[in-house]
């Protein structure tokens, strides 16, 4: 699906806004939850929390930003809270994009023959990132442009561009054409 779809202007009430958001971005929200939580049970809870937060948030939706920006902000903010809570109980340290560039790749040299294997690798890569870098890479993977990512994250467009450049380099190293068969 294309993540740059927008919600019809006719949807005006909280319930309608939510239903349209869930219909249009439901799959993207599921992928987002998958990137923030590996455990399927906890992930289901996280996804439901995101939906609840989204529904609640539409009560105060004032149209100052696009519905897409609003939805991604809510979803990423709920997910970031989840990461902060989980950080206390999980030992693996999160890293930034620049550190990811320098880290040796565990699967380096092994072509990702299977699609699911490539997806698993991509998920593992994303789940190692600090929340803000995770926001950027997820938005990038969903097909959002730098200006939209900047609006969602609050980073400057220049900073987002730098991060996207790094993301491309990391993805190129991890998902060389010979291995990935999307």
């Amino acid at each position: 699906m294309s993540a740059i779809e927008t919600i019809p202007a006719a949807a005006s009430t909280q319930d309608e806004l939510y239903q349209d958001a869930a219909r249009t971005f439901g799959a993207a929200l599921e992928r987002l939850a998958r990137a923030y939580e590996a455990d399927p049970e906890v992930r289901r809870d996280l996804l439901q929390d995101i939906h609840v937060a989204l529904w609640r948030s539409f009560e105060g939706f004032d149209g100052r930003c696009s519905t897409r920006t609003w939805i991604y902000r809510v979803a990423h903010n709920v997910a970031a809270s989840h990461v902060m809570q989980q950080r206390r109980t999980r030992s693996q340290a999160l890293v930034g994009l620049e550190e990811l560039e320098n880290l040796p790749d565990a699967a380096s040299g092994q072509p990702a023959a299977e699609r699911s294997q490539a997806l698993d690798r991509l998920l593992q890569l994303i789940q190692r990132l600090k929340p803000l870098d995770r926001h950027v890479i997820l938005s990038y993977l969903e097909g959002l442009d730098a200006a939209s990512i900047a609006e969602i994250t609050g980073l400057s467009p220049g900073n987002v561009a730098t991060k996207i450049h790094r993301i491309k380099a990391v993805l190129a190293r991890q998902f060389q054409t010979r291995g990935t068969q999307p």
């Binding site: 439901g26 599921e30 992928r31 439901q48 097909g143 491309k168 998902f175």
Partner: peptide
């Protein structure tokens, strides 16, 4: 780099999802 990252985008966006639907009533209860 663009080719590989485009493939990663395609891989990411085409992954199977459960397509969980929650009605407004279910959301209120939740």
């Amino acid at each position: 780099n663009q080719t590989n990252s485009n493939q990663a985008q395609q891989l990411w966006q085409s992954q199977p999802v459960e397509d969980i639907k929650m009605s407004a009533d279910v959301i209120r209860r939740r």
